[in-house]
Design a binder for these strands. Structure first.
Length: 867
DNA sequence: CAGTTCCCG
DNA sequence: TTTCCGGGAACTG
């Protein structure tokens, strides 16, 4: 309760400042006059619309926290105990699969944009500078940071903090060029390295390290660039410089690391006859070499982190910033030690909001995150708490997956207030045009169009619409977007819609197959069909007059108009190609003609002509005048799916008809079982529970240990061998988040109706579960019971096997357990290294079974999974 | 699927 | 005067 109150009361000013990145502990503000900075910012901020909105958002977060705290109050000791058990089973599994064999490097250019600008303009060197505009800064140099000037701060506020601040406009082209130079170097160490934006990258140097061992010294020797750089000496001896002699950013501190390597380096430097240096073969040396080469080539410094996975590497690169590096040695204890007092905010993926939520639970550091794992598993979604758990154990992905296909593309613009419909429509069209161009570059077509609006009070709204035929061209996107916009304009009418930002996004891209299908499908026919008298498909809104008027009306002179003019020019060049397809039924159509046409459409629509559509395939009159339904019908007609679908649907329906009779009884059984399970567990008579409960071991508590807690409530280690434990874990079910409205009993929390997220505790009613061990059909469809049965079966077999073969207890033999377990594993477990693969590596065993089970009506789904 | 929120650079 | 842009992912209804 204290917590609830405290959160609710927490001063809103603090909240806003936090939001604005001031108290942001992500980057330290060494020796700053924090008070003063905060005061200045408050003065510049208070009373603005922006500030009001920040307050509002802050309140929303507070409400979320309050809700969470209420939920927390309801959690019983039993629930927590059970969660602890389950989470700790998982912890053991995760520990077992911990992979420390990769060497991942995160490279982060120091104050990248600012550094580039300083390099290219000597006058800026000693000054506080920021890159961006008066309304927004992208980054600042370290000098400016001392005044509290930071990335993502509006320039005018920065100016108040630091009146001498020089603001340099962005020049992405230049940064891109520099970035490319850096990437060329990185590629030599890992051809598959993963760039993250212009100034960051991950490398997997595991292979390089191996090869490097056999390299001759000369291959690790690099020369100072005497053309244009300092040459890596702190005290000057500037080996420069055609030009740029004086403006080298910060003095490199390349060999200033902690280790004994330092002597070697000194030695190497001595040997290097003033202008070359040889790097060693360790990971640290490799990274020093990379940073050295980056600096020689670009005169810019980088920071780096070395660790067994990407998450850790990223946090490492932050440690000795700027121009430093840090390594976590690939040992479990080193990892845990690094995390011990690390504030969660430093973890990539944990931002302001999450930080605040966790803080409300008393969690600030990663070790606290670990200690509260059971509670978190009850308060947060599966994805979230699993992520928290990974964080607190220092687990992350150990390989660099190349970023997959793009999922959406968007463009948006901020401007000073626009409040007339015509301006808004033309702006919208312009955005669509931009977007269409970009889409075309990548040859993408999407089915969902999202319109984003931010009103003058900084409130953001998004409106989306998914259409059957995918869109790609300006007209196609605009056709959807203008409807969305129209709805919004109407919704505030008769008041004007006052916006400061508009954006258009296209998502739901077609895959290759769908593209093919799309091509031969009716789409183009349909689209042109709207010009055929009998098929008027365009639906128009009441604000249509605005729209038509708008495009014919003269425009204000503005940035956008200029841009539009430029684009128009551009467009005219490409339009012959672009619209060839559609000209089947059009004669030459410029956008003006298009407007005329929509107007006609509107007229027709308004006068109630053409209410009934006729399918152009089967020539049947359609009962609905809904465009989408018609489209669907036609698509189905075309692909012949219609017939097939009907058959399938009716089949399914009949099978569903059986369930109602079955259901009530089943439910009763279920509830009974839950009740029983509950008492079983408490009494410790349940077989699977007793395995883990029969403990003799009492480890001392240490953060991150497999068996960490002495508290009687905590899970205690058992005296089974690792292999037995592991198999036991394989069957582990994870706690389900307690939902807001589930204040009822223990068993019931697990059970909610069909479609809910609790599905993974329960198979579909009409499935039959077959135990993969004893091969007998199980009566229950409750996965908890089922899993328990399998546990029991397995343990029997295992214990037998263990006594027979006398396994060494220490070494865990995956192969063997797979064998023992063969048939019992589902997809997720075939992977030898679950949870460390993909960024969010999907489902665990029990989930994937049940999710599949749920998604299918087939009686044999579960059986299949055990094949 | 639609809408919103969070997070990152 | 003045508080960005674009993208992915997750959650909710």
């Amino acid at each position: 309760m204290d917590n609830v109150k405290r959160v609710a009361k927490s001063s809103s000013n603090d909240g806003v400042l936090l939001r604005m990145g001031l108290n942001d502990n992500k980057a330290g503000m060494e020796g700053l006059d924090k008070e003063k900075i905060n005061r200045i910012i408050m003065e510049a901020t208070k009373g603005s619309k922006f500030y009001e909105n920040e307050l509002k958002k802050d309140q929303q977060v507070n409400q979320r926290i309050e809700k969470m705290m209420q939920l927390k109050e309801k959690i019983t000791a039993q629930q927590l105990l059970k969660a602890q058990l389950q989470v700790d089973k998982l912890v053991m599994e995760l520990e077992q699969n911990r992979n420390l064999s990769s060497t991942i490097v995160h490279i982060d250019m120091d104050a990248f944009y600012a550094a580039v600008e300083m390099r290219d303009n000597p006058e800026l060197k000693e000054k506080p500078i920021a890159v961006g505009s008066m309304s927004m800064l992208s980054t600042s140099n370290y000098h400016a940071r001392r005044f509290g000037v930071r990335a993502a701060m509006p320039g005018f506020i920065a100016k108040r903090l630091c009146p001498h601040l020089t603001i340099v406009p962005l020049n992405f082209e230049k940064y891109g060029r520099v970035s490319k130079e850096v990437r060329e170097i990185l590629a030599e160490y890992d051809p598959n390295f993963m760039p993250m934006g212009l100034d960051e990258a991950y490398l997997n140097i595991t292979e390089h390290l191996e090869e490097r061992l056999n390299w001759p010294e000369d291959r690790r020797r690099f020369f100072f660039n005497t053309e244009s750089t300092t040459g890596g000496d702190k005290d000057g001896v500037n080996m420069s410089a055609k030009f740029n002699k004086d403006e080298v950013c910060s003095s490199p501190v390349l060999f200033e690391d902690d280790t004994s390597r330092m002597d070697d380096n000194l030695e190497q430097r001595g040997l290097s006859v003033e202008n070359s240096v040889v790097f060693g073969t360790s990971a640290e040396e490799v990274v020093k070499e990379i940073r050295f080469r980056i600096e020689q080539k670009t005169q810019l410094t980088a920071s780096a982190g070395i660790a067994p996975n990407t998450m850790l590497a990223k946090m490492c690169s932050d440690r000795n910033k700027p121009n430093g590096q840090f390594r976590i040695s690939p040992e479990r204890l080193a990892v845990l030690d690094f995390l011990k007092d690390l504030p969660i905010r430093k973890v990539p993926g944990i931002g302001k909001v999450t930080e605040k939520m966790l803080k409300a639970l008393g969690i600030v550091t990663c070790s606290e995150l670990y200690h509260q794992r059971a509670l978190l598993s009850l308060l947060f979604s599966e994805v979230s708490w699993r992520n928290f758990l990974d964080i607190s154990l220092g687990l992350g992905s150990t390989h660099l997956e190349k970023d997959g296909e793009r999922k959406s593309m968007s463009t948006e613009r901020t401007f000073s207030e626009i409040n007339t419909a015509e301006d808004q429509y033309s702006l919208c069209r312009e955005l669509c045009r931009d977007l269409a161009q970009e889409l075309q570059k990548e040859g993408l077509k999407g089915k969902t169009v999202t319109l984003k609006l931010k009103n003058v009070n900084f409130e953001v709204k998004t409106r989306a619409s998914t259409v059957l035929s995918s869109v790609a061209t300006e007209e196609e996107i605009f056709a959807v977007a203008k409807d969305l916009l129209g709805t919004e304009i109407d919704s505030v009418a008769p008041h004007p819609l006052r916006i400061r930002l508009m954006g258009v996004r296209v998502s739901g891209f077609l895959n290759e197959e769908e593209k093919k299908y799309q091509q031969k499908s009716i789409t183009s026919f349909l689209k042109s069909g709207k010009e055929i008298g009998s098929l008027r498909l365009q639906t128009e809104k009441s604000n249509q007059e605005y729209f038509t008027k708008n495009l014919q009306a003269p425009h204000r002179e503005s940035f956008f108009d200029q841009k539009r003019a430029a684009r128009q020019l551009n467009r005219e060049n490409i339009s012959p190609n672009e619209s060839r397809g559609k000209k089947l039924f059009h004669d030459d159509k410029s956008s003006e003609n298009f407007v005329e046409e929509t107007k006609k459409d509107t007229d027709l629509q308004n006068s109630n002509v053409c209410k009934i559509f006729t399918c152009p395939v089967c020539f049947e009159k359609q009962s609905s005048n809904n465009l989408e339904e018609l489209n669907r019908h036609i698509d189905e007609c075309l692909s012949g799916m219609y017939v097939k679908d009907t058959v399938e649907i009716s089949k399914n329906d009949s099978s569903r008809e059986n369930t109602p009779n079955f259901l009530p009884q089943f439910k009763k059984e279920y509830v009974d079982k839950c009740q029983k399970n509950k008492t079983d567990e408490l009494a410790g008579t349940d077989q699977s529970a007793s395995v883990s409960d029969s403990s003799t071991n009492n480890n001392t508590e240490k953060f991150g240990q497999v068996i960490p807690d002495k508290s009687p409530r905590e899970w205690q280690p058992n005296n089974l061998s690792d292999i037995a434990r592991n198999v036991c874990m394989k069957q582990c079910l994870f706690p389900k988040r307690i939902s807001q409205d589930s204040e009822d009993n223990f068993g019931k929390t697990e059970h909610t109706e069909g479609t809910s997220s609790s599905c993974f505790f329960e198979a579909k009613e009409d499935t039959v579960l077959v135990c993969p061990v004893c091969n007998s059909e199980q009566k229950t469809t409750n996965l908890v019971s089922f899993n328990r049965h399998v546990d029991v079966c397995l343990n029997k077999g295992l214990i037998q096997e263990l006594t027979e073969k006398d396994f060494p207890t220490k070494t865990y033999n995956m192969e063997n357990s797979n064998r023992v377990f063969s048939g019992g594993l589902s997809k997720g477990q075939q992977c030898t290294n679950p949870s460390q693969g993909a960024k969010r590596s999907g489902l665990t065993a029990s989930q994937s079974v049940s999710k599949k089970a749920k998604s299918s009506n087939s009686k044999h789904t579960i059986k299949m999974f055990f094949k």
